[in-house]
Structure formats: C-alpha cells, structure tokens
Design a protein around this nucleic acid. Structure first.
Length: 487
RNA sequence: GCUCCCAUCGUCUAGAGGCCUAGGACAACACCCUUUCACGGUGUAGACGGGGAUUCGAAUUCCCCUGGGAGUACCA
C-alpha cells in the first residue's frame, strides 16, 4: 500500500471541540503507528461562520495536546494550500469534469421550489428526495432560465454513478472500525456539489481536497456515515482511488445528548482554563473507545501510538463523565515535575502576592498543597492562609474549635513553648510531636490539639501539613495569629 | 416519517463459542494509615436490555423487539 496519509479537517466556526480533539488524536495515533503523515486542513468554506480567532484556537489547542501535524496551513506541504477558502479556484474544474461526463447536472430550482417539495413530502409522510426535475433540461431551457437571471447550482447524479460502478443500488464499503456498511443509494437524493454562488458544498470540497492531498484513510465521527456513501460515488465518478474510511462512535453528555455548552466545557481551551492538564485530557479522551492491551491506562500519546490499532476502537458511543477525568487530572498533577507545576499554578494564584515568598517557600507551599488538587484552579482556594499577616477565621471553625476551652488551653501552652522554638521543619516536627504527646497525657486527642493550632493559624479545619505551614509562615506570623485567636 | 449505526457493572471498558461462578479502571461504600482534608493501602457492592434460533455448550453467531445515537440543507 502507498503511504498512509490521514487528516483532521476542522471547521473554524468555534473553538476546538473536545470531540474533534479525540478524532484528531485517533488520526494522529493511526499515522504514528503506521509511519504515516498527519495533515491539518481548515474547512472554512462557510465564510459567515469562520473567524481568525477560531483558527488560532484550533492551532493552539492541537499543539497544546501534542498533536503536531506534518502538513498544514502554517507549515505548508506538497499538497497545499491547506485552507479551503484558498482553494476555491480548483473546485469548479472538477465540477465541470463531472458535468461533462454526465455525473452531474445543473439545477435551476429556487430555494422556494425546493422548500415546497419538501413540505409536500413531509405532508404525505414520504421521505424527501430531490425530484431530479432538472436532470434532463435542454440547452434551450437552460438558456431561457439563465436569461431570467437564474444561476444554477450543480447536482451530483447519484443513480447514474451508482449504476456505472455497481451492480445494484446497494453501495457497500468496509469500514475500519465498524466492518461492512451498506446503504441503498436510491434513497439518497441528488445533492448539490456546487452552490449557485459558485462555491463548493462540504461533500464535494472534502472529496476534492482529500483526493488531491492523497489522503489514504479517513477517520472521523460516525455522523459522517451517510456522507461517506455520497463521497465514495464522487471518487468513483472522478476516476479516483477511494480511500479507506473509519467511523468513530460519538462522545455524548451524561444525559446521552450531544455534548454542548449546557453540559459545561466543550472546547479544549475551556478545559485548559479550568485547570485541566492537556496530558490528562488527551489520555482520558483516548480511553473513550480505546483501551490499552496491558491494562495500564495512564499513558502518553506516544506510548498509546505503539499499542494502537484502529480495528480495536469501539464502535459504540461513549459518555463523557467528569469523574474519571478528574481523577486522572489529579493523578497527572501529582506526577508533574515540581518546577513545571509551580509555573502552571501561577495563573491561578494571581489574587495573592507571590513576592511575599521566597522561591523556596513557594516550592514548599506547592509541595504540601498539591496532593488534593483535582484541577489546577483548586489551588486558589487552597492557599489563602499562606499570605498576609492575619487570617480570616471560618465562623464554624471559630465556634466549634477556637471557642472551646481545650483549644484555648492548647493555644496558651503553644505560645509559651513555641516562643523558644526554631521554626525549621525538622525542629517543628519533633517539637510538635512532643507537644501532642503532652496533651495526650491529659486525655486530649492529638487531633484536637492540632486542630486548635490549625484553626488559629489558617482559619480553617483542614489544609496542608501543619509543620510545613508553620515553617513557611515563620515564627512572627504564627505567633501573631495564635495570639489573635486567644481570648 | 424514512435510512443508517450502536447495545457488558452508574460511567469508560476487557471479553472475538467452552479459560466467565464475566476481569480492570473511575465513582460509591467499609476498614486501615494518619496532626485535619486528602493521598495511599485493603476489601465490599455492582453488568451481559428482552424474546426466539443455531449448538453438546452463547456475553460471544443469526433473527425479531426494545432502547439509545446519527443522518435526512445551495451548514460543515
């Protein structure tokens, strides 16, 4: 077989969708596994909905996910341009070819006429297929319509192509993930390939582009299955080699509907802003439909590529649930290199004055607070007590902990003893241990002892390791806060 | 409406006729660890949508039903 060439062809009518990212990933994996090329093409045929902002977002998201393309609008390649709007001059040539070979014809029907036919069909509970009304227009009739100022669209003649290349009206192909798929093409209407304004429709543009870009395998969502039948016929009518197709199940929201904004984030960039790591995102999304042969689910994209076979991908839909993504994201946060993590956390710490801390203190703070983080943005609410001279005491902690007599006794004793301590973690650790033991003798649980100190110093009942907190804050601030908490 | 696709624990999945009294992961629950919250460890509970057929034997093959999804544009 000739070179494996796959592509992802997003339409820039929105930010890169997580579903598109998964499709891109499977294409990328397939290319990697088969020493092929991964091509990025921007399908901006519909100028109305396209914007540069979205194009940038698609580029950035794909790069952030590590899905680097070999050919594309920015890096170029031998089969460019890779932006559809820059290819407008090439589609009419092929449409003309189809017109000449009789696999396409001009259609002068107005949108109103078409609309009426459709209504008629639904009224009679009949499936709508284009009537082929314009199939056999004479040159005279066409000239007359043109004279009236009507501009024709070009329609593809399904039945003619089907008859020319297949014995029956049933068209079949062997899908890479679903196996044999078939369709009765007599149920398909002759669809428009060139709009009356001279631009190609999706189904035509993709075929021409994929053909010219020598795409060998088309891996995409199963929402394209019905398009595939139309596209195969175009390839055949054009005398081109038909690529292999593979249709992936869709990603659904927990309510089994299409994943949309009302379910939360849908764009990769939104997930990133929320504090999801691209490593976790891509790993998670790979597991939707694919599973590792060794059972080891945490894997880099390159590791997955080694193990990847398109035929192993599940053909059913899968539901996007946050539980596992969250777990996985937390896992990746725990695994991250500390310096890396320090940088990635900074965008979520802007409300604090990091200059209050030395780099060593910041490092230590991150080390002791990273554990419970699910998403990076969780850091914001996890660290307020590391900053400023004083803390705000949680009302509940105040009444339940600080206001008790035991706590007050603990704090009194703490102030007395800690005055003489050195506030390095090692010392603190042993001193605190002894401190707890001392109270335990009096029948006070270690937990209670520590709670008094914790609430006085941090304002809350839970948080990072106390020893580290005290060391980072330093003796002055700790003593100040504890004294303030005393009655 | 018509056409197509899909169907194993709540979720993601393993399973390609006997290895399945169906395995793993996340979530849940319990216990352990522990200076809190967590992390971690151990364990518990939890599924082959229904009905036929083929077979000595079916989660695995076939058919029907049901359920879910998608497509049905001069959108992509």
């Amino acid at each position: 077989m000739s070179e494996v060439r796959v592509r992802i062809a997003p339409s820039p009518s929105g930010n890169l969708h997580i579903g598109t990212a998964r499709t891109a990933l499977f294409n990328y994996l397939f290319a990697k596994k088969n020493n092929g090329k991964f091509v990025l093409r921007i399908e901006d045929t519909d100028a109305e909905r396209t914007s540069q902002e979205y194009i940038d977002n698609i580029f950035d998201s794909l790069k952030a996910l590590g899905l680097n393309w070999d050919e594309g609008p920015d890096v170029g390649g031998a089969y460019g341009p890779y932006t559809q709007s820059e290819r407008f001059d090439i589609y009419p040539k092929y449409a003309q070819k189809l017109l000449e070979s009789g696999y396409a014809y001009e259609c002068f029907c107005t949108p109103e006429e078409l609309e009426a036919e459709k209504e008629e069909a639904t009224k009679n509970k009949k499936p709508y297929v284009y009537t082929k009304k314009c199939e056999n227009l004479t040159e005279e009739q066409k000239a007359k319509l043109r004279a009236e100022g009507r501009k024709p669209a070009i329609r593809f003649n399904i039945s003619k192509a089907q008859k020319a290349f297949h014995d029956t009206s049933i068209l079949k192909f062997d899908d890479l993930v679903k196996g044999e798929l078939h369709m009765d093409t007599s149920l398909l209407g002759d669809f428009v390939i060139m709009k009356s304004n001279g631009t190609p429709t999706y189904n035509f543009a993709v075929v021409i582009d994929d053909m010219l870009m020598k795409i060998s395998h088309i891996i995409r969502g199963e929402d394209h299955i019905s398009n595939t039948f139309k596209q195969i016929l175009i390839y055949e009518a054009l005398g081109a080699e038909v690529p292999r197709f593979g249709h992936l199940g869709m990603i659904l929201a927990p309510d089994r509907s299409k994943l949309s904004k009302r379910h939360g984030a849908t764009a990769v960039s939104e997930f990133v802003e929320k504090g999801y790591l691209t490593e976790a995102l891509i790993n998670f999304v790979a597991l939707l439909g694919w599973s590792p042969s060794d059972g080891q689910e945490i894997k880099t994209v390159d590791e997955i590529a080694q193990d990847f076979r398109i035929g192993d991908v599940s053909s059913s839909n899968s539901i996007f649930e946050y539980d596992k993504l969250n777990w996985m994201n937390g896992h990746y946060i725990k695994m991250l290199d500390i310096e890396d993590l320090k940088e990635r956390l900074k965008p979520y710490l802007t409300k604090y004055d990091l200059s209050e801390m030395t780099d060593a203190q910041y490092t230590r703070m991150v080390e002791v607070t990273r554990e419970p983080l699910t998403i990076l943005s969780d850091i914001t609410d996890a660290v307020p007590y590391f900053f400023g001279e004083t803390v705000e005491i949680d009302p509940k902690a105040q009444t339940e902990v600080l206001d008790t007599e035991v706590s007050q006794n603990v704090l009194k004793e703490f102030v007395k003893q800690a005055e003489g301590w050195s506030f390095d973690e090692e010392t603190l650790h042993t001193k605190l241990e002894a401190f707890r033991a001392q109270f335990k003798e009096l029948g006070i649980k270690p937990k209670i002892t520590m709670w008094a100190i914790r609430v006085a110093v941090t304002g809350r009942t839970c948080g990072a390791d106390m020893t580290a907190i005290l060391a980072i804050l330093g003796k002055d601030r700790v003593m100040k806060r504890v004294k303030m908490a005393m009655k």
